[in-house]
């Protein structure tokens, strides 16, 4: 990511044409990635909707406790992590290094907590006999396929995000990354959060008993 600062779109106003959006390249690329990734998630959610409409025997197995409750806690954690991310970006912008580092670490920890809770959830479902290709309730087998692939894709993004946050946090403290890198990571993290705001109602609430 250190290539980002060479093309920040700032500080070379005299030599280059203005960027039409006036934002650094890294940020622009991240926005583009977010758009593209949103399309990917839409495609997977489209698959889910398509198969669900086509399956008369769709299962709605989730009980309020523990699954939905757990989901609400996870949602709360992820939302909180967006808040801490925001604080990290603010701190980094204001040049408060140690605060920025702290908030970044907090975000990464909350993300890791989210992933852990999610994996416990998965474990519980696998114990109940849910598989990609198997429905223990005897309904449509697409439930497991859709559930695990959508949440799995999201989980992959969370885990990737936690790793990125850790790298950025450490690098930021050492001076390898600057506030823009923190902000760019923030865009990604908020996006992951936003996707969960679609996944939670569509995959959890709509499948509650």
């Amino acid at each position: 990511m250190s290539d980002v600062d060479i093309t920040t779109g700032m500080g070379h106003a005299g030599f280059m044409e203005e960027s039409p959006y006036g934002i650094p390249s890294g940020k622009l690329a991240m926005w583009c990635f977010v758009i593209s990734d949103a399309v990917t998630f839409s495609a997977v959610l489209f698959v889910y909707g398509y198969l669900r409409i086509g399956s008369p025997d769709w299962s709605t197995p989730f009980k309020f406790s523990p699954t939905i409750l757990n989901g609400i806690v996870m949602t709360f954690i992820l939302l909180t992590s967006s808040l801490t991310m925001l604080a990290a970006v603010e701190a980094a912008k204001a040049g408060r290094k140690s605060a920025g580092f702290g908030w970044l670490c907090a975000t990464a920890l909350l993300g890791a907590l989210f992933a852990t809770l999610h994996l416990f959830e998965w474990g519980r479902m696998i114990d109940d006999g849910w598989r990609l290709f198997q429905n223990p309730l005897g309904g449509s087998v697409h439930f497991g396929a859709a559930f695990f692939s959508i949440t799995g894709l999201h989980l992959l993004h969370v885990v990737g995000g936690v790793c990125a946050l850790a790298v950025i946090a450490l690098g930021y403290r050492r001076g390898g990354y600057n506030s823009i890198d923190v902000e760019v990571t923030g865009i990604y993290w908020h996006f992951v959060d936003l996707v969960w705001m679609f996944v939670f109602p569509l995959v959890y609430l709509m499948n509650a008993q």
Partner: peptide, 22 residues
């Protein structure tokens, strides 16, 4: 291709030299 596309978009929008308007 996705990585490549990101790169092309950022380069076109942000790296144009002085006077190279769209």
């Amino acid at each position: 291709q996705l990585l490549g596309a990101l790169n092309f978009i950022a380069t076109t929008l942000d790296l144009r030299t002085k006077g190279m308007s769209l």
